[in-house]
Design a protein around this nucleic acid. Structure first.
Lengths: 207, 207
DNA sequence: ATATAATGCGAGCATACGCTCGCTTTTCCA
DNA sequence: TGGAAAAGCGAGCGTATGCTCGCATTATAT
């Protein structure tokens, strides 16, 4: 039997409905962030929206930042999953096919929840999650780098690190701007055009 | 004589030292934003750093947001000046020379005050300055569009709007990531490499 | 059935923040 | 030089927010 005295479980020991509580809290935080922005996300409001009391909230999250951090982590995990899958599927394809697929996936990933994406991007410096996000970026960098290495014969002579940086930046930027700036008024046709053009940009650069 | 009763001058009627006060307030806001972030920028603190009382602060700025907005405006004006000048200087140059110059200038503009740039980018949605920043973006878009139009013969057949969007996004992204992510550890050599590569990316795309 | 731990509750404390208001000091100019 | 307007001051108000704590409810195990 655990010797742990019935103190407040520092962080969590979720075995039953408490799991549901935690989920509800994270979900509520995400909803409020998306719909009303960071300022409106007070702990009282989060608890209220989650259908939970503030007391319970503080049993699982030591601070408001911890909640936002949890949302960020969940979101990043989701996106990383998509990216990893895409890069795996693409491993044996030639550069042009691969890039096209990656750009498509990138836009789709951003389209899941553009507003959340934006708010989170804003809050990352505040929550001290910068390190995690950098890790996240490094993983993408590594994955792309590895892919490019395996396709070196299709490319011109080039510093792979620099090339990776340029390609990832370019793709990220177009998807970002497409989804965030360009609002939601994105015809399917427009998306296809942008995918095509971005592919051309990157592929043209690599060889 | 003006019929205006000695009420509080809604916004300003700066003729003497009051100008200095306003400047000090904007400057203090910028400093705090850069060094400590948005949360720490309370009106009391801003006034204190500016060497001014809160009361005076509120004589010139109706709210905290107004202060941040002023900082954003000042910063945007500065950058737009740089960009306009660069684009003017570049008007008669062929695409490759022009792009190289633009990329160089873009990186330099970002390097003036990377941290302020970042914080402001985060706060723009909050201050309702989105419209102004969009105007700012539209101006850049228009300027680039015009330049590209004048150089059409050097380019492949291409939709100029799409091309402008792609080029601006790509350049913006590389500069952004270079200055923000890459911290300050930027050797001059690295900068040159990135300028070279970005130029290649964009020029290769356009023709 | 009862004891014990786990989970949930929400009024309320402490604090910090945006902002006002009545007053003093400085500047201007007739 | 005197008086009015402009500029500056800062204690303190109202409010909202993050968070605690003592207690109530529910689950688990014997």
């Amino acid at each position: 039997m655990a010797r742990t005295p019935p103190t407040k479980p520092r962080k969590n020991a979720l075995q039953a409905r408490s799991r549901a509580t935690v989920d509800a809290l994270v979900e509520a935080t995400a909803r409020i962030l998306t719909r009303d922005g960071f300022e409106k996300a007070s702990t009282n409001r989060i608890a209220e929206v989650a259908g939970v009391s503030v007391g319970s909230l503080y049993q699982y999250f030591p601070s408001k930042e911890a909640l936002v951090a949890a949302v960020i982590e969940r979101h990043n995990e989701e996106i990383m999953g998509i990216v990893r899958t895409a890069l795996a599927e693409v491993a044996d394809l030639p550069i042009d096919k691969a890039v096209r697929k990656l750009v498509t996936v990138a836009i789709e990933a951003h389209r899941i929840n553009p507003k959340l994406h934006r708010v989170l991007a804003e809050q990352i410096p505040r929550t001290g999650q910068l390190k995690d996000v950098e890790a996240f970026n490094r993983e993408i960098h590594t994955l792309v780098h590895t892919y490019l290495e395996s396709r070196r014969k299709e490319m011109r002579k080039i510093d792979l690190d620099v090339a990776t940086f340029i390609c990832v930046s370019a793709i990220e930027a177009v998807t970002h701007n497409t989804v965030l700036h360009g609002a939601e008024m994105l015809s399917e046709k427009m998306v296809r055009t942008l995918v095509e053009e971005t592919t051309r940009l990157v592929v043209g650069y690599l060889r």
